[in-house]
């Protein structure tokens, strides 16, 4: 749930999603679910000349499993908090696995 929780805070921010098939899509993150499926709005394709079929698409839904990277603005990440959150997650997992 950590990444889900993390991505929730990125809603309405501009992100660049790099897919496993090399398409890079920049857009406003509108929604995310626990599978890290993403919904983007106002998208533009970074390598549009290579993938012109995305030219007419305005918003899309990306299945989480096809995402390779999500690039985001460093300012929108609270690193200390993220460290804490990951520790917490590890703690919870350690408790449940016992």
């Amino acid at each position: 749930m950590l990444f889900f929780s993390f991505f929730k805070t990125l809603v309405d921010q501009e992100v660049t999603v790099e897919l496993k098939n090399d398409i890079e899509i920049k857009g406003t993150l509108k929604s995310v679910d626990q599978f890290l499926n993403l919904k983007l709005d106002n998208i533009s394709c970074a390598n549009e000349s290579k993938y012109p079929h995305l030219k007419s698409v305005k918003n899309l839904f990306i299945r989480g499993s096809t995402v390779r990277y999500v690039h985001m603005n460093a300012n929108s990440v609270d690193c200390t908090l993220l460290q804490d959150a990951s520790r917490r997650e590890a703690m919870v997992q350690a408790q449940t696995s016992k």
Binding site: M1, L2, S5, A85
Partner: peptide
């Protein structure tokens, strides 16, 4: 615990 990041992030920012 489970949604720590988002919850606290909301409070901090």
């Amino acid at each position: 615990n489970e949604d720590f990041y988002a919850q606290v992030f909301k409070v901090i920012h």
